[in-house]
């Protein structure tokens, strides 16, 4: 049985910590483990951005991670979606006036879905991933429809 047209492929996620406090990161893992169980939808964490469809980025990009974030983004194959998780990833949050931080992820790489909260609950993260999924499938359809260059 097909749930809808978007539940066709399984979605692989790469999690990138750019200097977050761990709060969002453990909530992401909590989202994957039995209580919330994202893996039943075929969503799983992968070890390399080269395997990923979605980048799950947390934290207020520190100075040394700035270049790495851009490189990880470039290594992820198209079509891709980026989710910014947590208050500091979406806006800088509580760390608004530091000398070593970029503030928010969208200043460094384009972001598709924002999940606010400090930290967001696993349900919110799951909702964010599903939003990215729908966006990704639309992107894929438009890429397939476009004439090959």
């Amino acid at each position: 049985m097909r749930l809808n047209k978007y539940f066709e492929r399984s979605l692989w996620v790469f999690h990138l910590n750019t200097g977050s406090c761990n709060g969002c990161d453990i909530e992401i893992v909590a989202g994957l483990t039995p209580r919330y169980d994202l893996e039943r939808f075929g969503i799983k964490l992968v070890g390399s951005p080269k395997h990923a469809d979605v980048l799950l980025v947390t934290g207020p990009v520190t100075g040394r991670m700035l270049d790495r974030v851009k490189r990880v983004y470039e290594q992820t194959p198209d079509p891709k979606a980026v989710i910014a998780v947590g208050a500091c990833g979406t806006s800088g949050g509580v760390f608004y006036n530091s000398y070593n931080l970029s503030g928010s992820i969208d200043k460094v790489i384009p972001v598709d879905v924002y999940v606010p909260g400090c930290p967001p609950r696993p349900e919110a993260i799951i909702n964010g991933v599903l939003q990215a999924w729908i966006k990704l499938e639309k992107l894929r359809e438009s890429m397939e429809a476009a004439p090959a260059r």
Partner: peptide, 13 residues
Amino acid sequence: GDNHRGIEFMGRQ
């Protein structure tokens, strides 16, 4: 040093 956010500096403000 990859995760340095300068929290003590922020705290002084």
